[in-house]
């Protein structure tokens, strides 16, 4: 893997402060886990200076994810320059109080996972969360990757009704990548995030979507920085990205929202 990593380093434009738009801190029902310190060490080793972080599908989430959300806030307070904290909620459970608590606390976004929490993107309780987020100008990152079977069609009415909603499409809508580009590609408030998407899928994304609409992600601890940076960069180079477009992909595009 050292050879691959050398290639990655040779392709990151000089001076680029990489921003990872998708990483986790905490523990998951499936046994995966990541600490704030562990994530920070991986970021520093790979030249990543800032990461959006949110809870895993925590076995101790209880009804409202308040415990895992507290863990995220502690990570942010420990390393405020490194982390952009998102909170997580379950649309099937009462969430109004936790939503307000997290927004008031200063969380910078909301993570929703339709597979882990077993809801459809057009479930009325999920749509209500999108409405609340749009009303507070709070970006939402949705899992739209592995195991998803309906993405574009259930999401379209929400984005039509709340065009001001800032949405990060996690894993770039993987199985519906082309349909997502056709439907949401012109929306100025939608970004496509690249974590653990295969290079051939990313090539399709990057050949069909404006470069300023794509942002890099790792999905740590499910992904890792070397392989996800490699997939993103090799696809971008094959798709003909310029050095400036690579800078946007790795950093500038998502920093328009989070600095």
């Amino acid at each position: 893997m050292a050879e691959v990593w050398d290639w990655v380093l040779s392709r990151v434009p000089p001076g680029t402060e990489i921003f990872d738009a998708h990483a986790h801190i905490g523990a998951d029902l499936d046994g995966r886990e990541m600490t704030a310190t562990g994530l920070r060490e991986r970021m520093q080793a790979a030249g990543v200076t800032r990461s959006i972080v949110f809870p895993l599908n925590d076995p101790n989430a209880r009804e409202d994810f308040s415990g895992p959300n507290d863990t995220l806030w502690e990570a942010y307070e420990a390393y405020p320059g490194f982390f952009v904290p998102f909170f997580r909620l379950n649309p099937h459970r009462p969430y109004e109080q936790e939503f307000e608590r997290c927004v008031e606390r200063g969380f910078m976004g909301l993570k929703l996972h339709p597979v882990s929490q077993d809801f459809a993107l057009d479930d009325p309780r999920a749509v209500e969360l999108f409405r609340m987020a749009a009303g507070r100008d709070l970006p939402v990152l949705i899992h739209a990757g592995f195991a998803m079977q309906r993405i574009v069609e259930p999401l379209r009415p929400t984005l039509e009704e709340y065009p001001e909603l800032r949405l990060i499409v996690g894993h770039s809508a993987m199985v519906e990548i082309l349909e997502a580009v056709r439907t949401f590609g012109e929306n100025p408030n939608v970004l496509f995030e690249t974590s653990v998407v295969k290079a051939k899928d990313l090539y399709v994304l990057m050949r069909t979507l404006a470069p300023e609409k794509v942002c890099f992600g790792s999905d740590i601890p499910y992904g890792d920085l070397p392989s996800t940076l490699h997939a993103t960069l090799t696809a971008a180079e094959a798709a003909g990205y310029s050095e400036d477009e690579l800078r946007g992909l790795l950093s500038g595009n998502i920093r328009r929202w989070f600095g």
């Binding site: 295969k198 290079a199 051939k200 090539y203 601890p221 392989s227 490699h230 997939a231 090799t234 094959a238």
Partner: peptide, 21 residues
């Protein structure tokens, strides 16, 4: 798991981009 996935994923990315090229 992460190290194993990283390498098999990168292997496939190398092959698929080569096919495209």
């Amino acid at each position: 798991f992460p190290a194993a996935m990283s390498r098999v994923r990168t292997s496939q990315d190398l092959v698929s981009i080569r096919i495209i090229k």
